[in-house]
Design a protein around this nucleic acid. Structure first.
Lengths: 344, 344
DNA sequence: CTGAAAGCGCTAACAA
DNA sequence: TTGTTAGCGCTTTCAG
């Protein structure tokens, strides 16, 4: 009895060639270099390809041509208690962007006992993908280090340290934060607090930098006490941190480092008997879908994920094709979404 | 000048064989059938493999052996406004489960103008993956139909219609709902409402069925008016639907079809001046991380995503290896997470 | 414009 | 236990 695998053999280029009465090469050309074929031949062969459901075997094609039409995406292991909410949204956009240019996304994650660099090396050495996409880039990110030293094509959502290939795309977080502060200043807020997370993460640093720039630009109070840090991702701890802030010399507005933190500000306000929008303005960052349940609706910044993914894929393909990384990163503007949480 | 691609050629089996003074086959055996080699040979070759950083070219290996070590995962296009929150969590678990047995996940999505069956067929015909994993299975799901008619290995998170291969794993939603109703009944609730979504989705149907079974089992009021349906995924519309319910002959408890809907119940209760936990009990389903911000904390059902993924991968591999689909699906219990939203 | 030859890197089957 | 032979299905190169 045949095994399952041997039964899987499908239509090959040979089958089509025989049926069409041409050589295998002509069938190959019909797919890869149609302009070389006489129109009639092309039409005949194409029809047969369609009819017989022929698709080039991806492995054979890759082996021969060296191109896999696969982009590897490394995901840091997600904390199930607080999943990186962007992972879902960005991945979504990435799959769509890559799909439009004929690439698919392969999820790569270190196996137990393996670090990021080793996992990446495995993919490179086995020639499994044509390039890498990475997100949530850190300073001295081991993935960036390995990929750039290995000279393998990659692109990153998030700034890459200077001295490395600048094949990154990011949101102009600084500008978005300045805009947010400006919005609050225009509504008369003079005492604005920043609610951040443990520093060191590049995207968090940008937000704080943008906040400070906004405060300076609009001539607001700059007391250091107005910058507080949530001790963790835990909702209860975030809320508690904000409550302490609200019990002191209370700010009239809280600029949160992300929607997740903004939700903590909402909870804290409620527990302190304050009404968001009236007694306390709150802003977030990311525009997570779930914030639609907040009342009043949250003012936040929406990331152009699809445009980011498009830009990243296009940059990556250019590197794959030409071997040359872009000279500079690309900053895309975030979109201010103004809602009732900052008052009427 | 060399092109980028040609530069990518790495260490081949030939290189290792020459360095070790053995044949290529021996190197291959060191990796694929080590027991066949004399210990010394094995050791020598293995050391060299390590030292030279040799990894079999995935394409060449696949072409020859017919196995790709890739599982394709089809994702229905996610509505960015209301992302399927489980997609992230399940995918996370799937990547981990597959990784442990040496498989990676390839994301497959129909290209513009292509339907699910065509996208799947493309992967099968191009021999890109060894099997498929699908989630959110519908009745007469086109993916199930195509895969089963094509005789290609697949497994599904969610029940598959009878008459098709029963290679599915699902949560025992009915039992979980009965437990939830029992919990409420034990606390004295007699008038319990079900807040559902447009019917027709199998998992929703299960929840309603479980709710009804619970109501019967515990001898509660069965007025049909106690089952309401949210008109859409939109938070505002969900909330409005619940408000209407609360303004009538008010139930003392709302069993929501999911955490998303439960959040709408929280909002509605607040707008109607009711306190969740005291005036109105609320339960959800899924245990989304974001519900940690709800106050009081939400009683819900946690899905054993990792166990589901493990079971699915193991079933899929069995099908890939033996060609035989399991005789029956597998139901895994959901975990009741009892919190304050149902009162003290 | 089309065909023939060669071989990508690997492993299954068989021979030694 | 190891080596030899053959060829997976395709595309590149070169010849017609």
């Amino acid at each position: 009895m045949e095994t399952r695998r041997s039964r899987e053999r499908g239509v090959t280029i040979e089958d089509v060639a025989r049926a069409a009465g041409v050589s295998r090469q002509t069938v190959s050309n019909a797919l890869n270099a149609p302009f070389r074929l006489k129109p009639e031949t092309l039409e005949k062969v194409t029809a047969l390809i369609e009819e017989m459901g022929y698709r080039p075997d991806q492995s054979a094609r890759s082996l021969r041509s060296g191109t896999r039409r696969i982009i590897a995406y490394t995901t840091t292991e997600d904390d199930p208690a607080n999943p990186n909410p962007l992972m879902g949204g960005f991945l979504e956009a990435l799959v769509a962007a890559a799909g439009e240019v004929g690439y698919r996304i392969l999820l790569v994650r270190p196996r137990p006992g393996q670090d990021q660099a080793q996992a990446i090396e495995e993919v490179i050495a086995a020639r499994t993908a044509d390039g890498f996409m990475i997100a949530d880039v850190l300073h001295d990110d081991p993935r960036v280090i390995h990929l750039s030293e290995r000279g393998f094509p990659f692109a990153a959502f998030g700034k890459i340290d200077p001295g490395r290939p600048q094949s990154w795309v990011d949101v102009d977080t600084v500008q978005a934060m300045i805009d947010l502060v400006g919005l609050l200043a225009a509504r008369g807020h003079r005492r604005i607090a920043f609610l951040g997370q443990a520093a060191g993460l590049p995207w968090m640093d940008d937000r704080l930098e943008g906040f400070r720039a906004g405060v300076r630009r609009f001539g607001l109070s700059t007391s250091a006490a107005l910058e507080i840090t949530a001790p963790s991702d835990d909702p209860a701890e975030i809320t508690e941190a904000v409550r302490r802030l609200l019990r002191g010399n209370r700010p009239s507005a809280v600029v949160a480092d992300g929607d997740w933190l903004a939700m903590g500000a909402y909870m804290a306000a409620r527990q302190e008997g304050l009404t968001v929008g009236a007694d306390l303005a709150v802003t977030g960052f990311n525009d997570l879908p779930v914030t639609a349940f907040l009342q009043p609706a949250l003012t936040t910044v929406r990331l152009p994920l699809r445009r980011i993914a498009d830009a990243l894929v296009s940059r990556l393909l250019q590197i794959i094709d030409t071997g040359a990384a872009p000279q500079a990163g690309l900053l895309l503007p975030g979109e201010l979404v103004i809602r009732d949480s900052i008052g009427g």
